[in-house]
Amino acid sequence: MSAETTGNASSAYIKHHLTNLTYGQHPDGSWGFAHTTAEAGEMGFWALNVDSLGWSIGLGVVFLLIFRSVAVKATSGVPTGLQNFVEMIVDFIDTTVKEAFHKANPLIAPLGLTIFVWVFLMNAMDLIPVDFIPQAFHLVGIDNMKVVPSTDPNVTMGMSFSIFFLILFYSIKEKGAGGFFNELARNPFEHPVFIPFNLFLEILNLVTKPISLGLRLFGNMYAGEMIFILIALLPAWIQWSLSVPWAIFHILVITLQAFIFMVLTIVYLAMAHESH
């Protein structure tokens, strides 16, 4: 086997691991799964990454089932086991929200909790060895399977655009459309001449928020996943020496990214509620 074929095999392996299971309409008009990224691209916008969506919804359901089961049985007595753990997370979110968000809004804290736990679970899929689940699906005939939903920009951007929508909604609700426009038009330079310049800056600033929010999570998780894939290219007997330290370090990264996503969401929404 020449170096070139090894290289091709490696690159094919990497590409394969980075290909979503996309369902959509082929250019020839038939519906079905795409086999390559290029084919998925040809399907245009109206296609679904079934793997990303499936894992993300599955993990969200797991999160809600666990928390709901605790919420149903929650007592004010001495908490035990799972209730203790859940309450610790709830208390942590509650404290974070209270520190950053000073208005009364019953949506913010549950939103923070959902983001933190859900994103954490999606990121945590990164810790499962890269070949386990794809190989299992390969055995039942499904070729492409990306198991970490947060390495799919659709997933992270889907969430960050939802938050962008909330930012716009609460800005207009709290300050009125005129107040919101005023805020955009009169900062940072309060002079009629600067209105177009201010609008340009502030709208750019506004639009950057969801994009940076979504891309930050995606970029971190994608890079982490990529390193796991690269480690998986090494001979099997040596992989542990790199994958174990990276996995341990990654525990920190996935928690931190989930936390950052949540905190920034809270901060953006707090800014939407308060006029400067």
């Binding site: 980075l18 979503n20 996309t22 959509g24 990224t37 998925a40 691209g41 399907m43 245009g44 916008f45 109206w46 296609a47 679904l48 990454n49 990303s52 969506l53 993300s56 919804i57 969200g60 999160f63 809600l64 928390f67 709901r68 949506l107 549950p110 939103l111 909790l113 959902t114 859900w118 939903p149 799919d152 920009p153 659709n154 997933v155 951007m157 889907g158 969430m159 655009f161 939802s162």
Partner: peptide, 21 residues
Amino acid sequence: MNINATLIGQAISFAIFVWFC
């Protein structure tokens, strides 16, 4: 890595999860 309707699907499930929570 293509931007597609997954974005909308994720946004909808996000909204439902937050509402449930």
